[in-house]
């Protein structure tokens, strides 16, 4: 990981506590991502996932630390970082086309109507909403609304997509199709994507790397799980892959037990050098530093 397209450096977020003091949601959090990478964050409710994402989006400011994107410390929000909101956040008084066009005109102020419309239409077609352009959000199903949110985010051709549990409110079938679409679009356009999810299978399907966070307050990034599944994995045959259960069990184990006891179990945890977990056929192999991974025997066997 020499290419640090996104680099979160030592960020902390504190809120004033009930009895005068301060409560830290997290302290000294480090996380980096390469260009074109898909990262998923998993952790229990309230551990600070949304807070990290909002800081990355520029919607929220860290109490300490900086976020560097493409070699520059971020200042506020940017059209380079598109957000797909959990609650879709469509403007209800605008049509589907109007919502996407709003984003397009925000990015390209000088474009004339026809050009904006044509550009917006491309992305509406991309998410499969052709024919619903003139509907209001209230006339759409939950899955369709979320698609509009995706079209809006993509229409500004961002460098990074930030997604906060984008599919959690959807039924399994819709979620599946949207996962396919997001994965296809991200692979095709080379997006760097950062997604929060509670769904382990979703993370395994979409992510190149999965970030595991411990429970808050005082949450830490405990482990980074590298996805052992091949790039051309399909959503429906994930479970046929030999490493699937190993990865899944590792993450579920973390969520069920180790996320609570992590701080006590690992007193020497170094937030700058989070352990990278590579899953072998039999047991997950925990490696101290990313550099060492390349020569690790378990890794060779796994291949």
């Amino acid at each position: 990981m020499t290419d640090k397209f996104i680099s979160i450096e030592a960020i902390a977020k504190r809120y004033p506590g009930a009895s005068g003091g301060e409560i830290a949601v997290f302290e000294d959090l480090w996380l980096s991502m390469a260009r074109g990478e898909f990262g998923c964050v998993i952790g229990h409710s309230g551990c600070g996932k949304t807070t990290v994402l909002n800081i990355l989006a520029g919607l929220d400011e860290p109490s300490e630390g900086t976020v560097i994107v493409d070699g520059q410390a971020i200042e506020g929000t940017s059209l380079d970082r598109a957000v797909i909101f959990q609650s879709h956040a469509l403007l209800p008084w605008r049509s589907v086309l109007g919502n996407v066009a709003y984003a397009v005109t925000s990015k390209w102020r000088g474009w004339d109507r026809a050009r904006v419309k044509a550009h917006a239409q491309t992305f509406i077609d991309l998410v499969g909403l052709t024919g619903s352009e003139h509907k209001r959000p209230s006339e759409l199903s939950g899955g369709m609304k979320q698609r509009v949110g995706i079209a809006r985010a993509l229409s500004i051709t961002p460098k990074i997509m930030l997604m906060d549990e984008p599919f959690s409110a959807l039924d399994a079938l819709t979620r599946g199709t949207l996962q396919d679409e997001v994965r296809r679009i991200c692979l095709e356009t080379g997006q760097t994507a950062f997604m929060i999810t509670h769904d382990v299978d979703e993370a395994i399907y979409l992510a190149d790397r999965i970030f595991l966070m411990t429970n808050g307050p005082g949450a830490v990034l405990a482990e980074i799980v590298e996805n052992p599944l091949p790039k051309d994995r399909g959503r429906t045959d994930l479970h046929r892959h030999p490493y699937y259960y190993a990865v899944r069990n590792h993450i579920v184990d973390f969520l069920v037990s180790r996320s609570k006891t992590f701080a006590a179990d690992m007193p020497g945890h170094d937030p700058r050098n989070v352990r990278v977990v590579k899953i072998g056929v039999s047991e997950p192999t925990i490696v101290a530093a990313p550099r060492a991974v390349e020569t690790h025997p378990a890794q060779t066997i796994a291949r």
Partner: peptide, 27 residues
């Protein structure tokens, strides 16, 4: 006005005046 609508405008780098007319006023 719902925070998420304001946030949409913020992530799109919409200026204060345009935000007032395109998000806050209709909302």
């Amino acid at each position: 006005v719902r925070k998420e609508w304001i946030n949409v405008a913020r992530t799109l780098e919409v200026g204060t005046v345009r935000r007032a007319f395109t998000v806050i006023l209709p909302a």
